[in-house]
C-alpha cells in the first residue's frame, strides 16, 4: 500500500489530464480534417499562451490557498496604460517598465490586504478588480475613446508580433520561458517551497519561521506583474488596447489551475498541471470553433468539462488513497 502512495498526490492526476487531452485530440482529429496541423497547434498555443503566463503565478497563489480575481482587470489596465504612454511619446521600453511597475503595485496591494490584513482573497481581489477595470476605462477615456489604437508608434506591435527565427511567435517563446522559470521556482527556490508549505499547513509554516505575509505579497506581485506583462503583450500583438479585454480572464485562469489539479484549499498543484489544464481549455475552444458550434453550447461544454475533469481527478485521488 505504501508503495503506491510514494508519489506526491498531484502527480497521480497528471496521467488523467493527459488522458483527457488525448481523447479530445483523437476526437478532433476524426471530426475535423484541419485539426492535426502545425498551424492549428500554434493557434491553440497562442490562445492559451496568455492564460499560461498568468496562471503560472496565479497557480502558486492558489497553492498557498489564496486566489487572485484581479488578473483580468490588471491585464486590461496594463494594456491601456502602456498604449496610452506609448501614444504620448514615452519610449516603448520605458513604458513597458513603468507599466510593469504599476501592475505590480496592484499585486502588492492585493498581497497587503490578503496577507497582512487577512481579508478573504475573493473579496480583496474582487475589489482590486473593480478598481483596475474602472481605471482602465478611465485612461482610455482620457485618451478620448474606449480603445487606443490611433497614434501608436509603428514599433508598438513589434514586441507582440515578433517571431523568433522568423517562425516562432514571441508568446510561445515566452510561455516556454515563463513555464520553465516557474517550474524552476516550484522546484528550486525557497519561494516555491514555501508556497507549498503555506498552503499545506499555514500554522506549521508560521511555526517553522516562514514569513507567510512576505511570501503572499511576493506571489501576488508576481501574478500582477505577469498579468501586466501579458496585457502589454496582448495589446501589442493586436495593435490595439481595449479596457474590456480582461473580462472573465480571472475565471479562465482559475479554471486552468483547477483543471491542472491545483487544490483551491492549497498545498497541491504544479506548473505542469497548469500547462495541461490550459491545453484542455485550448483544445475545447479550438475544437468548438473548428466545428462552428454555437456559442451557447460552448458555454455548456465549458461548464461540463470543468465539472467532469474535477470529478475525474477526485476519483483518481480516492482510488489512490
Amino acid at each position: 500500500m505504501t508503495g503506491k502512495l510514494r508519489l506526491p498526490r498531484f502527480q497521480s492526476q497528471l496521467p488523467i489530464l493527459v488522458g483527457i487531452i488525448v481523447i479530445m485530440m483523437i476526437f478532433l482529429t476524426i471530426v475535423s480534417p484541419n485539426f492535426l496541423k502545425a498551424q492549428n497547434f500554434s493557434n491553440i498555443l497562442l490562445k492559451i499562451g496568455i492564460y499560461i503566463l498568468i496562471a503560472s503565478a496565479a497557480n502558486l497563489i492558489m497553492i498557498t490557498g489564496n486566489l487572485d480575481l484581479s488578473v483580468g482587470a490588471v491585464l486590461a489596465f496594463s494594456g491601456i496604460l502602456h498604449a496610452y504612454m506609448c501614444k504620448h511619446g514615452i519610449p516603448i521600453p520605458l513604458s513597458i517598465l513603468i507599466t510593469c511597475l504599476a501592475a505590480m503595485t496592484w499585486g502588492v496591494f492585493n498581497g497587503f490586504t490578503v496577507g497582512k490584513l487577512r481579508i478573504v482573497p475573493v473579496v480583496a481581489t474582487l475589489g482590486t478588480m473593480y478598481m483596475a477595470e474602472g481605471l482602465a476605462f478611465l485612461i482610455a477615456r482620457w485618451d478620448g475613446g474606449t480603445n487606443i489604437m490611433l497614434g501608436l508608434p509603428g514599433a508598438y506591435t513589434r514586441l507582440g508580433r515578433y517571431m523568433l527565427f522568423g517562425k516562432i511567435p514571441i508568446i510561445i517563446v515566452l510561455v516556454v520561458i515563463v513555464a520553465a522559470i516557474f517550474l524552476f521556482i516550484e522546484k528550486k527556490t525557497k519561494l516555491g517551497r514555501f508556497s507549498f508549505a503555506i498552503g499545506d499547513n499555514r500554522s506549521a509554516a508560521e511555526l517553522s519561521g516562514i514569513n507567510v505575509t512576505k511570501v503572499i505579497i511576493i506571489l501576488y506581485a508576481l501574478s500582477a506583474l505577469l498579468a501586466g506583462f501579458s496585457g502589454i503583450l496582448q495589446s501589442s500583438r493586436v495593435g490595439l488596447a481595449a479596457p474590456n479585454v480582461g473580462r472573465m480572464m480571472e475565471t479562465y485562469v482559475l479554471i486552468v489551475c483547477v483543471l491542472g489539479g491545483t487544490k483551491m484549499s492549497g498545498g497541491r498543484g504544479s506548473i505542469i498541471g497548469v500547462l495541461l489544464g490550459a491545453a484542455i481549455i485550448g483544445l475545447l475552444e479550438n475544437g468548438l470553433n473548428l466545428l462552428g458550434i454555437e456559442h451557447f453550447y460552448q458555454e455548456v461544454a465549458r461548464g461540463l468539462l470543468l465539472i467532469i475533469a474535477v470529478i475525474a481527478q477526485k476519483n483518481s485521488k480516492s482510488v489512490k488513497s
Binding site: 506549521a204 511555526l207 517553522s208 497541491r268
Partner: peptide
C-alpha cells in the same frame, strides 16, 4: 511543537521537502 499534525508536519510534502523547511 506538541501538536505535530496541526503545527508540525506538512502532510502533502515529501520527507525530503519537509526537513529543510526551517533552514532552507
Amino acid at each position: 511543537p506538541e501538536e505535530r499534525r496541526v503545527d508540525g508536519i506538512f502532510g502533502q510534502l515529501s520527507i525530503r521537502a519537509n526537513i529543510p523547511l526551517m533552514r532552507m
